[in-house]
Amino acid sequence: MGAAQEIPVPEPPLHEDRLDYTPTARSISLSRHRTARLVRQWGHPELAGDAALLVSELATNALLHGCMRGRLFRVHLTLTGTALRIEVSDPRGERLPGLREAADDDCYGRGLLIVARLADRWGVEPRTVGKTVFAELVVR
């Protein structure tokens, strides 16, 4: 019989914020500004700009590809001793994001490339209804 694998215990959050937004362009700006303000208040001003850009890209993707009429999208921030996790959840679980190369003259298509380069880790998690796309920044 093999040795039992140890399941990592999640770190307790030091700070957490969760807010639902209407699927409008104004919500992108609101979520970006709220994220930057909270991350600064939580003692990590060096992460505020990157966190704001990540939430902006993830929320824009939710708005363009994951929202449905009458359904909100959620931004959830969690700060632990080692990471800032940014999650954006939307109701369209069948529309999974993927990296792609945008042509030089394309107006869209670079959001996840920005997320992949900026975040220390990112990914997609299914939900009972919809999906959550997350990005994490290591706290140094």
Rank of each mutant, 00 (worst) to 15 (best):
I7M: 11
P8K: 09
P8H: 05
V9N: 02
V9F: 03
L14A: 09
D17G: 00
L19W: 12
L19E: 15
T22Y: 07
P23R: 10
T24W: 00
S29V: 12
R32W: 07
L38M: 10
V39K: 05
R40F: 02
R40W: 02
G43F: 04
G43I: 07
H44D: 10
L47Y: 02
G49H: 12
D50M: 11
D50Y: 07
D50R: 13
A51D: 13
A51W: 11
L53R: 09
L54M: 10
S56T: 14
L58K: 06
A59G: 15
A59F: 07
T60K: 06
N61W: 06
A62R: 04
H65R: 09
G66N: 10
L72T: 13
T78P: 01
T80F: 03
T80D: 09
T80V: 05
G81F: 00
A83H: 15
A83F: 10
E87K: 03
S89N: 01
P91V: 10
R92E: 05
G93P: 07
R95Y: 03
P97T: 07
P97Y: 08
G98I: 01
L99T: 08
E101L: 14
E101N: 02
E101S: 07
E101Q: 11
A102C: 02
A103S: 13
D105Q: 11
Y108C: 14
G109Q: 09
L112A: 02
L112Q: 05
